[in-house]
Amino acid sequence: MFAILLTVPAVAAPLASASVGVLAWRPFFDPLDLHRQWFLLLIPLAFGIAVTYRAVRVNTFERYWLKTVILTVQIVLAMILLGTAAYVFIQFAVPYLLPMTG
């Protein structure tokens, strides 16, 4: 559901060019061909998590959607920070701590 919002434009463009491979795509039976844009799928994932988690946590639904959007942004930013930290650790810290010999 959430992924549909994001993937429709990405799927519609190749469909317009009448590519045989994309026309053969069968929803739920074939995987999407979004291997290069996979990271964009993390945004609807964060939104889905926020919708459900906020619905459980709040007592009243006052400003519910604002809280949901804020949590979505927080999740996405946290993933970016964790990804950056992992990149820095692997690219710079590990070669410094464990230099390759020979």
Partner: peptide
């Protein structure tokens, strides 16, 4: 909201990766 969220995520997963 919780039903739409949980089932939306589940079926979005099926849509992205297929039933596999």
């Amino acid at each position: 909201l919780v039903g739409g969220g949980v089932l939306g995520l589940f079926f979005s997963g099926l849509l992205i990766g297929g039933i596999d």
